[in-house]
Design a protein around this nucleic acid. Structure first.
Lengths: 223, 223
DNA sequence: CCCCATTTTAAACACTTGTAATAAACAAAT
DNA sequence: ATTTGTTTATTACAAGTGTTTAAAATGGGG
């Protein structure tokens, strides 16, 4: 009956000394589950595969997290935190400089995040977008990503622009980046000539930025 | 032992008279499976739910199609054929007229196809893109959709344009359309202000076309 | 040393899955 | 009317699922 959630206060302040004794299994479980969920999706991923990858027993998930669903929710939170640490909001994105630079910075951050081969979040996020689960709300559906884009677009369109036009432009840019989040796995089949080099993110950033600058400029003139 | 595939020659020429006697169950199965696969994905969809929806028995799938996978492959082919009938390649898309008109026509066709609420293909296609199955190749991964776009972009960029630039522009346009194919289900959560009216496709077409014309024009000047 | 809370194992459970085996119903032709 | 080939219906099965139960091990304070 001693729920795992209750001893967080009794042991949390002193569980680091033994080299992450308590956190060890939990961490391994979190990592293994992240990979399984990202690779196969929530339903297709099995608790047996997860515990095998984490080198622990079948009951661990229920003991440490309370079930498969709770583990999944924790995985989402964990990966969001991880990704936010790896792609911090840089200071120059909100800067007052040229709107073109702000747009380029926002696009670059988005592209790097979505193409980061070491992050499992884009895949998990894409799966959730295609098939939203109750845990989706906890990810704060990409609002932070689009906010930087929104202010840059606002700067380019001018303060008196139609907000709906601005929203459409933001979506036009965001969708070009998000595309790779969705088709990553099928990219060789649908876009065989796409090279996944180290410089791919920068080339992509340049193209999307220029394309967007042209599109925004034309729509601004059209009124 | 009498395989269903063998009597296609012996009964096919005379199975229509009794009001689609033979085709009836098969058709119902195909329709039910299309909806289940589109709603839940291949693995999550169960043969029991499918046969229940088709108002037939559990063995029908194995008898008429030979298994769940074969049924799925048939569903993909069926839906592709259905969609191609509903969205025929119009003659003015390849016309020699103004490249702007060609682009607008290609975008319009793409948007209408992807936003068609009565077609299950976009969902099935999105599922396959996110998680390609062996049956994915049989869909001819959207090549026909992008070819119209490609020729329009080519016409706008000029005959001496860098083919890689043209490919990037095509992808920029296609991704803006495909975005809705992926996020349709989560649209209320990620884009609450998007109205799914009857005129939504046309507004979308206009915006994407103008945005793309501006982007292409800028990239053409950039060289 | 021993008790006790915590954690780890291991086994079992109840349920669902796709498919195979088998039986029943049906329709048409001899 | 009976036989034959085809379709439908029912049942059974083996494998896999998440979860529960209960036993074993662990590791510090009394």
């Amino acid at each position: 009956m001693t729920d795992r959630l209750m001893d967080a206060g009794s042991q949390a302040p002193a569980d680091l000394p033994p080299g992450s004794d308590e956190q060890d299994v939990r961490r391994r479980l979190l990592d293994a589950a992240s990979e399984e969920f990202a690779a196969r999706g929530f339903e297709a991923a099995t608790v047996r595969d997860i515990v095998a990858r984490a080198r622990t027993n079948l009951n661990s998930i229920n003991y440490h997290f309370g079930g498969k669903q709770a583990l999944y929710a924790e995985v989402l939170r964990h990966q969001v935190a991880l990704s936010e640490a790896r792609h911090p909001q840089r200071s120059d994105e909100r800067a007052e400089g040229a709107p073109e630079a702000a747009l380029r910075a926002a696009v670059r951050r988005l592209v790097r995040f979505l193409l980061d081969p070491d992050s499992l979040l884009p895949r998990l996020y894409a799966l959730e977008l295609l098939n939203p689960s109750p845990a989706f709300a906890s990810m704060g559906p990409g609002a932070s990503q689009q906010s930087a884009l929104a202010s840059a677009v606002q700067g380019l369109l001018g303060p008196h622009a139609d907000p709906r036009l601005a929203a459409r432009c933001v979506r036009s840019i965001y969708s070009q980046c998000a595309y790779f989040m969705f088709v990553r796995k099928a990219l060789p089949m649908v876009d065989p000539q796409f090279r996944h080099d180290a410089q791919a993110p920068d080339e992509l950033t340049d193209h999307i930025t220029e394309f967007a600058l042209g599109g925004i400029e034309r729509l601004r003139r059209d009124r």
